[in-house]
Amino acid sequence: MSSALSIRNLRKVYSGGFEALKGIDLEVEQGQFLALLGPNGAGKSTTIGIISGLVNKSSGSIAVFGRDIDRDFSGAKREIGVVPQEFNFNQFERVADIVATQAGMYGLPRKLATQRTETYLHRLGLWDKRNERSRFLSGGMKRRLMIARALVHEPRLLILDEPTAGVDIELRRSMWSFLRQLNAEGTTIILTTHYLEEAESLCRQIAIIDGGEIVVNTETKTLLQRMNTETFILDIDEPCEAAPAADGYAVRKIDSTTLEVDVVKDQGLNQLFSQLMTQGIQVISMRNKANRLEELFVSLIEGNGATTAEP
């Protein structure tokens, strides 16, 4: 499969001398749904800024669907839609005008721009708000407006920088559903997020950037297989005095009716349950202690030890 985005040895040194990107390489295949993860100041937004033309790179190369940004930036930009982290539309303009104006900036004739504006405002559930001044929209609507605006020229690569930050759960779920649908229609999507559940649920590939370097770039399922141990919370029927002993498992008591147990990959839970049963302990319910990807992310970042402050 050919490449939607190819980044080679990308470096960015800010004027104060801060090296935000230390020569990163990243390959994103067409049709991929990639999560770009990393702590604050890791270099995610700088990378997106360079791809979209908002930040000047220091060195390295970027090609979008084979178009090198140094040789054909205009052609490359046509292929990209960007949804930034912060609201960046005119607060005094009407919703429909904001989307149609962006279409015009990509050279779409008035009639087509109007049709596309209608299409994407409908798809993002903003058609009823088309004549509202944008400053009167709710936070979630503003996010959806930025997505509609980024899609109006129908890019093949959509980049979203923390699109669900500050969005309520219901809206986040509907946004996920929309992004899945968009990806199924063929749009390559790159997403940065701090919600690791979001990355695990949506993305087939995960790249983790830390301290200006890509520390992991692999399929989501491969990454999750790296997890050796999962921690489960068990609710039991009768109060217990101390944590019960179970051969091969580390069991800890949280309170009289709640236990915490570490289960090594491939170890299974049957053995644990049968050992608890022999001691007269009945498990009523069970849940994961934490998001698996979150645990892995923290261990990777701590292992890398390169996290730096924002420039």
């Binding site: 979209s52 930036f73 930034p84 912060e86 960046n88 962006q102 900036m105 990509y106």
Partner: peptide, 10 residues
């Protein structure tokens, strides 16, 4: 920051 609308366009 709506200047970014113009800068990301071709």
């Amino acid at each position: 920051r709506c200047i970014e609308e113009m800068l990301v366009s071709p």
